[in-house]
Amino acid sequence: MGKLIVASNNYNKIREIKQILCEYPVDILSMKEAGVDLDIEEDGATFLENAYKKAKTVYDILEHKFMVLADDSGLMVKGLNGEPGVHSARFAGEHGNDEKNNKKLLNLLKDKDRESRRAKFICTMVLAAKYDKILQVQGEVEGIICEEERGNNKFGYDPLFYVPEYNMTFGEMSAELKNSISHRAKALKRLKEEIGKYI
């Protein structure tokens, strides 16, 4: 069985990737599980720059022996001029504090109209594979930021991201539904065929 190293230690992100790629005979490991103890600074100006940096850094550390997948994703809100964007994970100043990030987002959008609350999730993925091939894809999904959290799935901005077609937030969706329509799912679907070539 081949190995795919995800350039992340984010449990929720890796769980989603495993669920979406479950049909492939590949062992999906976090950086920590692959023996890479490193905190890669995401200092790029775009999602692509951050994803590329993470993929290439881990791929080089592992001496090009395994495929490495990195993503950088975030939320862009129309009424906030595209913020939080690349700063989504540390919007409130502390990396990965979903509660504080959501609270800040709600405060900034207080009394804003529906048009200002229009938003989209973006996921840019970079795969470093055999023969030093670098592949990049992007997936997007559009929605609206709610006025309060909805749903039990508290991953990131999910309880605030409402998808009109389904009359639910990501936080209210089953894992199966979210993983079929999300920005990460769309990006991974575009990579699936390529990943299959290297397993």
Rank of each mutant, 00 (worst) to 15 (best):
S30P: 01
S30W: 00
S30M: 00
M31S: 03
M31N: 07
M31V: 00
M31Q: 14
K32D: 05
K32C: 02
E33N: 03
E33W: 05
E33G: 02
E33H: 07
A34C: 01
A34K: 04
A34H: 02
G35W: 07
G35C: 02
G35N: 06
G35Q: 08
V36A: 02
D37G: 08
D37P: 00
D37N: 15
D37K: 12
L38G: 11
L38P: 02
L38W: 06
L38A: 05
D39C: 10
D39L: 13
D39P: 01
D39W: 05
D39E: 15
D39Y: 12
D39T: 14
I40V: 10
I40S: 12
I40P: 14
I40K: 13
E41T: 09
E41H: 00
E41A: 07
E41K: 09
E41R: 04
E42F: 02
E42G: 04
E42Y: 04
E42K: 02
G44I: 10
G44E: 12
G44V: 10
G44R: 09
A45E: 14
A45T: 11
A45W: 04
T46D: 12
T46S: 15
T46Q: 09
T46P: 03
F47K: 10
F47D: 09
F47L: 11
F47S: 10
L48C: 03
L48H: 11
L48A: 14
L48P: 04
E49R: 08
E49N: 13
N50T: 00
N50H: 02
N50G: 03
N50R: 02
A51I: 01
A51Y: 11
Y52C: 13
Y52A: 11
Y52H: 09
K53C: 02
K53P: 06
K53D: 05
K54T: 07
A55R: 02
A55W: 00
A55H: 01
K56L: 14
K56C: 12
K56W: 12
K56S: 15
V58G: 13
V58W: 11
V58L: 01
V58K: 09
V58P: 05
V58D: 12
Y59D: 11
I61H: 07
L62Y: 04
L62A: 12
L62G: 08
E63L: 10
E63V: 07
E63C: 12
H64P: 10
H64Q: 14
H64N: 13
H64G: 12
K65P: 10
K65G: 11
F66H: 15
F66G: 10
F66D: 14
M67V: 06
M67D: 14
M67H: 08
M67I: 09
M67Y: 03
V68C: 13
V68L: 09
V68D: 13
V68A: 12
V68M: 11
L69F: 02
L69C: 04
L69R: 06
L69W: 05
L69T: 07
A70H: 03
A70Q: 06
A70F: 00
D71I: 00
D71G: 08
D71F: 01
D71A: 09
D71L: 04
D72P: 09
D72V: 01
D72R: 03
S73H: 08
S73I: 03
S73C: 05
S73M: 08
L75H: 13
L75C: 08
L75D: 14
L75W: 10
M76N: 15
M76Y: 11
V77D: 06
V77S: 12
V77P: 08
V77R: 07
